[in-house]
């Protein structure tokens, strides 16, 4: 079991309020991702749950018990750090088993659990090495191994993939997803990378300035963002926003449309524009288009569309795909 509930959790450092007050419900077994730009308080919130920082106010309830005043060790959680934070003077075997040994578990039980974890994580060949002799991906697997042997109520991941190169990141992302599905352990995962958030999460919590902007499944956030911030943060390349007269015509202060929902053509219906730049990625082409009365529009076209810099272009979009926002940035629903 591992349900986590935050009630009015806030954190201030001196006079700076980092988290003004967060309420959140994390159901047992779900994979929740905190995502937001750097400095949005997502790591602080994770550290508050972990107990590495003390809450200034509010309650943190794990499986029905308020743990806000308990030290990290008493909360039954395990954490994987961005820097891996392995014990450099211990072998992989000892790193993974350290928590269990310190808890006074019998030697053979520790050995068995370390063995099992290292099999799951493909670390069996490295058990007698020290962290300094491992690659970044292997180190991160050791850190994950250290977390899973303790059979915690929940895993906490603090940007675990940021120190890995791009290819390894994709591979580890898949491994983490697979592992979490197999173990079905509640997981809270912090990242600034919205692709990681979209691919891993059952539910995404979008944070901005210490506030929860929206909570929902990846596709909910993509299809029905509550506000401008979420609309701009989720999705890559980011949503195009247009204000002023063009938006007013649709009864909104701002309208937003995703690059992939814009159809660009040489001749047809829609806004007139000029191609400023075209990025050909093979499967996709990103077009950066200068359109009067806008700050420029990005459009995604499939495959090789023969448009190049300076070409005139017409842009159209399905009206149902256009998001409307009021002057406060809140979404207007039909």
């Amino acid at each position: 079991m591992g349900s986590i509930r935050l009630e009015g959790v806030s954190k201030t450092f001196g006079r700076t309020t980092v988290i003004p007050g967060v309420d959140l419900d994390i159901k047992d077994g779900t994979f929740v991702v905190f995502v937001g730009p750097s400095g949005c308080g997502k790591s602080t919130l994770l550290r508050l749950i972990a107990g590495l920082e003390d809450v200034s106010a509010g309650r943190i309830i794990i499986d029905g018990n308020d743990v806000a005043k308990l030290p990290p060790a008493k909360r039954g959680l395990a954490m994987v750090f961005q820097s891996y934070a392995l014990y450099p003077h211990m072998t992989v075997r000892k790193n993974i088993g350290f928590g269990l040994r310190m808890a006074g578990r019998p030697r053979d039980e520790v050995a068995r659990k370390v063995e099992a974890a290292s099999n799951v994580l493909n670390l069996s060949a490295y058990l007698d090495r020290k962290p300094g002799e491992l690659s970044g991906g292997q180190r991160q697997r050791v850190a994950i191994g250290r977390a899973i042997v303790r059979e915690p109520k929940a895993f906490l991941f603090d940007e675990p993939l940021s120190n890995l190169d791009a290819a390894l990141r994709v591979q580890m992302r898949l491994e983490i997803a697979r592992l979490q599905k197999n173990l079905a352990t509640t997981t809270v995962y912090v990242t600034h990378d919205q692709v990681e958030a979209m691919t891993l999460a059952d539910r995404i919590v979008v944070l901005n300035g210490g506030r929860v902007e929206q909570v929902g499944s990846p596709l909910e956030l993509y299809a029905r963002p509550d506000n401008l911030f979420v609309a701009g943060f989720i999705g890559s390349p980011r949503m195009n926003f247009v204000s002023g007269e063009l938006a007013a015509r649709m009864g909104a202060a701002t309208i937003g449309v995703r690059p992939e929902h814009i159809v660009a053509s040489r001749d047809g219906e829609g806004w007139r524009g000029t191609v400023v730049a075209a990025e050909h990625l093979g499967s996709d082409t990103f077009l950066y288009i200068d359109v009067p009365q806008t700050d420029g529009i990005t459009a995604r076209a499939i495959g090789e569309l023969g448009l190049k810099q300076g070409d005139p272009v017409r842009l159209a979009s399905d009206p149902a795909r256009i998001h409307r926002f009021d002057s406060q940035g809140r979404a207007l629903r039909q």
Partner: peptide, 20 residues
């Protein structure tokens, strides 16, 4: 971070100093 990891591993301050 390494000391924090040991705290998450369930270790008290005294043993954190001695073993980590």
């Amino acid at each position: 971070g390494i000391l924090e990891a040991s705290r998450m591993d369930g270790i008290g301050t005294g043993r954190e100093i001695v073993f980590v």
